[in-house]
């Protein structure tokens, strides 16, 4: 996913501009003309300058650099699917872990990812269950990390051996 430098530069420059615009609204600290907007403004200006430099470079290289050069994987549906799957799995966890719990999410995500990558679903199932149990035991029971219980909440007492 190699974009032409001009496009990268444009994104960076726009980010810089947006930061400068936002930082303008920040108040000053007491007694001094500096405040929470000072550093972001400098960063915004820096990003804008770097962005413009990239745009110039990108335009001068436009003959050799296409606007977007996708990797070979983009022509393989299997790999595009794999790319999306990693993101979807993380998004799934972020959205639902609090409700359905870490354990179920962990089994599901491992199953889907390992299954997709190896193509052997039955083996993926037992690996994902074993790995999830190990993680649950090590982090929740031993190290007391409060991973969300989700639907298992009313029964959380049963699974804690302390």
């Amino acid at each position: 996913m190699k974009f032409n430098d001009a496009i990268v530069g444009l994104v960076v420059a726009l980010l810089g501009a947006a930061v400068i615009a936002q930082a303008g609204y920040f108040p000053k600290a007491r007694h001094i003309p500096y405040g929470p907007g000072f550093l972001p403004t400098i960063l915004g200006v820096g990003l804008a300058i770097c962005g413009v430099l990239l745009i110039v470079r990108g335009i001068s290289e436009r003959r050799t650099q296409p606007l977007l050069k996708l990797g070979e994987w983009s022509r393989s549906p299997r790999h595009v699917f794999g790319f999306a799957l990693v993101l979807v799995c993380l998004a799934f966890y972020a959205l639902f872990a609090d409700d359905i719990g870490h354990f179920a999410c962990s089994v599901l995500i491992l199953l889907v990812l390992i299954g997709h990558l190896t193509g052997r679903w039955l083996r993926a199932l037992w690996i994902s269950i074993l790995a999830s149990i190990a993680i649950q035991f090590f982090f929740v029971d031993l190290l007391l990390v409060p991973l969300p219980w989700g639907v298992l909440e009313p029964y959380s007492g049963w699974f804690v051996w302390r």
Binding site: S106, I109, I114, I127
Partner: peptide, 22 residues
Amino acid sequence: SILMPIILMFCLVGSFAIDNTV
């Protein structure tokens, strides 16, 4: 193909544990 998803899961738990939030 098996290791990478499991590493991802550890990363997930590690990120969670830093501030205890999803």
